[in-house]
Amino acid sequence: MEAFVTLDAVAVPLPLPNIDTDQIIPARYLSRPREVNHADFLFHDARRVPATDEQNPEFPLNREAWREAKIIVAGKNFACGSSREAAVWALFDAGFRCAIAPSFGDIFRNNGTKNGLLPVVLPAEVVEDILAQLEASPGAHIHVDLPKQEVTAPDGSTHGFEIDPFAKHCMLNGLDDFGVTAAYEDDIAAFERRYGRENRI
């Protein structure tokens, strides 16, 4: 997994609540293996004009000022819905390394930290304020500092965020769970013997 330490990048605002993973990547693009570049599937339908299938120039990700964005800022319950990890792959492959919202779908949040995409939860009023700043100055940067657990908004204001210490450690070092779990092999084996006796199939 790619490590995440600090990031200073263009942030794109998506000021809507409940943006679901079906919007982030429609189900018909889920049968591709991870090796396939998923960037083109990102918001595939949402960023197109339904009648013509052409790119909608009004959709934030299509606007010139936000083309280089690596941070996405959205309303509450971002990436709710399906467990599809391809929602993270699509964002990652399109260059995103961080998502900021007042809340996330729980499964997406886990999938993010296991794929190098940092989910940052900030209070709703802070997110609202940041969204307003991003819309007022398209192309503005946000600075994210994982060791300090701090976000610096375009106006220079700083906001602390919480992250699970284990997820933080894994993201900072680009570690995945497999390596960590290997160290607990004896515990698992002992547990398994007892559990297996009590829970036969």
Binding site: S83, N110, N111, K114, D176, I188
Partner: peptide, 14 residues
């Protein structure tokens, strides 16, 4: 769970 977690459960049952 997501697919990375599925792989982890397959490999470790945890």
């Amino acid at each position: 769970i997501g697919s990375t977690e599925v792989a982890h459960v397959l490999a470790t049952q945890t």
